[in-house]
Design a protein around this nucleic acid. Structure first.
Lengths: 109, 109
DNA sequence: CATATTTATCGCAATATTACGATAAATAAA
DNA sequence: TTTATTTATCGTAATATTGCGATAAATATG
């Protein structure tokens, strides 16, 4: 127990859930917003901006990288993070499809 | 430790994350899809459809109710679940805004 | 080379999540 | 009233997540 029973769900359902889960933490939302706001890559600022320890932020970045929504490029001693346009668009499309699949109640109790 | 540091994030960030987290499980995606597919309220079918124990499904339904995206109406011995149109639309709008806040890279490393 | 700077990883503690059996609570049906 | 049916809740076990200090790894700078 304690583990999600992925086997009983479709690949699509698992993927959608995984993606939503990755975004389902305020620190990760804040990180993405920060990158977006900067209109460029972010190299190191994050630790000063958010009120979390460096190790914690590194961990959140790792999770965002795992689902592919951000990308890191080594730039000297630091690493620059950008949003992966392709993955971002893909996530957007998936969510649009999901939310578009329901357009209001028809017959109901 | 082990607890998310909600205090250091904005209400908006926390809300968005909470909503995404609630949707970030394949069972909850499956439940929502099932309700949508039925084009009506779902009363009891869920336990037979998904391969999870009744207690587990009840727990997932509770989490979806907690964020308001579904609504339960007692109908005799069973409970009918529907999507809350208003909350669904709100979530959709929030996500559209979030994903719309980034439209591709400009200057980057 | 020695020292600083930056990020990743390890190890740990606290808490949360997932899943399930057992049981309770509420209503329908016999 | 007794018995089924359906859902919620409790308790518990297994695992995951969150957060952080310490430390490693890599590159820059003096």
């Amino acid at each position: 127990m304690g583990t999600t029973k992925s086997e009983i769900f479709s690949i699509r359902q698992n993927k959608l859930a995984k993606m939503l889960k990755a975004l389902g933490h305020p620190a990760r939302i804040a990180i993405l917003q920060h990158i977006i706001k900067a209109e460029a890559c972010i190299c190191g600022d994050l630790v000063n901006e958010l009120g979390l320890a460096q190790a914690t932020i590194s961990q959140h970045l790792k999770e965002l990288k795992n689902v592919g929504i951000i990308q890191g490029t080594i730039e000297g001693t630091s690493v620059c993070y950008c949003i992966d346009d392709k993955v971002w668009a893909q996530f957007n499309a998936e969510l649009t499809a999901f939310f578009g699949s329901y357009a209001g109640r028809k017959t109901c109790c």
